[in-house]
Computed example of a mutant assay.
Amino acid sequence: MSTLANPQKYLDNAHIALEVFQLRPDYRALLLVITNIPPAPSDAQSEALLQEAEASARATLAKTPVTDIPHVKAWRTAYTSFGAKPKKTPNSLEALTRRVEKGGLPRVNRLTDIYNAISVKHQIPLGGEDLDKYAGAPFLMRAKGDEKFEMKAGGKVVDEPPSKGEVVWCDEEGVTCRLWNWRQGPRTALTDETRNVLIIMDALDACSDERLDAAADELSRVLSGLSPEVEVRRRLLKG
């Protein structure tokens, strides 16, 4: 049975390797499967959410350097624990917050804009994967170093496998996101036509379960408001 025919079974099969919890016992992943989203370009609603997120980030940055924001700082520590260099490869929350610091968040399409806004507003790294391009249930593990990961470079698709010990999200065809939440591959990336999506919310101890739930609640509410056909399912994975 396909993922979209049985989204709950898909969520039930998602898993995280024990070695990830050994590295960060405080880690939690909140997974959301959201189906039947009507595709659309950026609009007034997504613009309002982006502006709210930018205002929130600027208020935080006026008092706290980006690297001292608690959840950003926690992710930088997590990255160094497996040999990554957060200055070179910032987590997705830090990268978006720095975009605000330099001028503003990108405007891509309605779906991407909405989840970027939620990420920045709630200070939680979020990843979005196109479920129609995903192969099997998601799982998080530490890489052996020979896994497949395709990226676009110079207009071409090239294979850039993760480093040994790197924390990576995968499906049955290979790595879908490197360095926990640093960079997603083009194979499963969201597009202007994406209708069915897996959202991954990554949390460490600097983010409470209540804050994680609040972010998921807002994202679910906004996307459900786009169409009565939108359906949202979610599952929390923790050690």
Results as ranks from 00 to 15, higher is better:
M1Q: 11
N6R: 11
P7L: 07
Q8N: 07
Y10R: 00
I16A: 02
V20Y: 03
F21S: 12
Q22M: 12
R24W: 08
P25F: 09
D26H: 02
D26G: 02
L30R: 07
L31S: 03
L32S: 06
I34A: 02
I34Q: 04
I37E: 08
A40K: 09
P41Y: 00
P41L: 01
P41V: 00
S42G: 09
D43N: 15
A44P: 01
L49K: 03
L50P: 04
Q51F: 06
E54P: 01
E54Y: 05
A55Q: 13
S56Y: 11
A57S: 06
A59T: 07
T60F: 00
L61D: 04
A62G: 03
K63T: 05
K63S: 10
T64F: 00
P65Y: 01
P65Q: 00
P65S: 00
P65L: 00
P65T: 01
V66D: 08
I69G: 01
P70R: 03
H71M: 04
H71V: 01
K73H: 13
K73R: 15
A74E: 07
W75Y: 02
W75P: 00
T77Q: 13
F82L: 05
F82H: 08
G83Y: 04
K88C: 06
K88I: 11
T89K: 14
P90K: 10
A95P: 02
L96K: 12
R98N: 12
R98C: 08
R99S: 14
R99K: 15
K102D: 11
V108M: 04
N109D: 13
S119K: 03
S119D: 02
V120R: 00
K121W: 08
H122R: 05
I124E: 03
P125F: 11
G127T: 09
G128V: 06
D130T: 01
D130M: 04
D130Q: 05
L131G: 04
K133C: 10
A135F: 10
A135R: 08
P138Q: 03
P138C: 06
R142H: 05
K144A: 10
E150Y: 12
G154E: 10
G155E: 07
K156G: 08
V157S: 12
D159F: 11
E160Q: 15
P161F: 04
P161Y: 03
P161G: 11
P162Q: 09
S163I: 12
G165Y: 06
E166A: 12
V167I: 13
W169M: 09
E172D: 15
G174A: 08
V175N: 08
R178M: 09
N181K: 07
T188N: 14
A189M: 10
A189W: 08
L190Y: 05
L190K: 09
T194S: 15
R195M: 14
I200V: 14
D202G: 14
A203I: 07
A203V: 06
D205V: 08
C207R: 14
C207M: 12
D209I: 13
D209P: 09
D213Q: 15
A216Q: 09
L219P: 01
V222T: 15
P228Q: 12
E231D: 13
R233S: 13
R235A: 07
L236R: 13
L237W: 10
K238N: 10
G239N: 14
